[in-house]
């Protein structure tokens, strides 16, 4: 919206559009320049902003923690090592609290999920216009900086968790055990179709709720930031009020992003714990 005048709805739509790379209608591969173009690309397209930001943030997390892990010593910890150890201890406590089995995967999984999602959510606190404007200045039509406000990212992670749940269910209970858990609960042998129906919903609900909860919260949060940002165009009084509102919402959002990351992590641990439980 640097040069052309935009209506409010166009402004909002612009902010909510991902930078999509895919098959253009004219037959070539490229970046979609409008929402309709992006939609027309179908499934085999990729949101460059979502995947790019999430990979950068994930690498940031891994490199920082790897750096801390490399420079570890048993003396008095300082600086980032202190923080990393605190985070690891916090996650370890959470895992011990919710996960009854023993697994080398769950705790690092929880750490990754928590910090990664937290960093993704943190992008929400960047003022909503900065990154899109910067991108526009660089000739990039769209740039949505919050990966967790893109359902692709949240569903991608939820599917990852879901696959782990399936893997550990089969591994711990055996294919037969897992199948019988789906087929013979809660109504016994006679209620087989109903059992499959209910347990199937129960199973599918896990990744769906996981993904939608995070997505919904982040999307709504971003939407409110965008709406507040709209007020900046409505005269000096509205702008000051909008600034105050944005500050208040940002402070509140600090809580939300941490909480959402924590909920995602805790539910991941709980779901994996359920997958590890052999008696239903």
């Amino acid at each position: 919206m640097a040069t052309e005048v935009l209506t409010s709805s166009e402004y909002i739509r612009h902010h909510l559009q991902n930078l999509t790379y895919g098959h253009l209608p004219d037959g070539s591969w490229g970046v979609a320049h409008s929402a309709a173009q992006a939609k027309a690309m179908g499934f085999w397209a990729i949101n460059l902003d979502t995947i790019g930001v999430s990979i950068v943030l994930g690498l940031l997390f891994l490199l920082m923690f790897r750096g801390a892990a490399k420079s570890l010593h048993t003396g008095v910890p300082t600086g980032f090592q202190n923080f990393a150890e605190w985070a690891v201890e916090f996650i370890d406590d959470s895992v011990r609290g919710s996960f009854s089995g023993r697994s080398p995967l769950v705790a690092p999984l929880a750490l990754t999920v928590f910090v990664w999602i937290f960093l993704m959510n943190l992008m929400d606190l960047l003022p909503v216009d900065w990154i899109p404007h910067l991108a526009m200045a660089m000739g990039i039509p769209f740039f949505k900086v919050v990966p967790s406000a893109d359902p692709n990212a949240t569903f991608g992670m939820a599917i990852g968790v879901f696959l782990l749940v399936l893997f550990y269910s089969v591994k711990m209970k055996g294919p037969g055990g897992f199948a019988s858990e789906l087929a013979f609960h809660p109504f016994g042998k006679l209620g087989l179709p109903a059992n499959i129906f209910f347990e199937g919903i129960n199973l599918i609900a896990k990744p769906v709720s996981l993904a939608l909860r995070l997505f919904g919260n982040m999307y709504a949060g971003e939407m409110i930031f965008i709406l507040i940002a709209l007020m900046f165009g409505g005269g000096i009084g509205m702008a000051v009020f909008g600034g105050a509102l944005q500050w208040v919402w940002a402070v509140f959002h600090i809580l939300i992003i941490t909480l959402q990351a924590f909920i995602f992590m805790t539910l991941t641990i709980v779901y994996l714990d359920m997958a590890h439980q052999t008696d239903h």
Binding site: L16, Q17, N18, T20, G22, A38, K39, M41, G42, F43, W44, A45, I46, N47, T50, I51, S54, I55, G58, F61, L62, F65, R66, L105, P108, L109, L111, T112, V113, W116, P147, D150, P151, N152, A153, F155, G156, M157, I159, G160, L163
Partner: peptide, 21 residues
């Protein structure tokens, strides 16, 4: 807001990060 291959990319990234961690 379309579901597309980002989903797959994100899942793969997820597994790689978790594995590295």
């Amino acid at each position: 807001m379309n579901i597309n291959a980002t989903l797959i990319g994100e899942s793969i990234t997820f597994f790689i990060f978790v594995w590295f961690c």
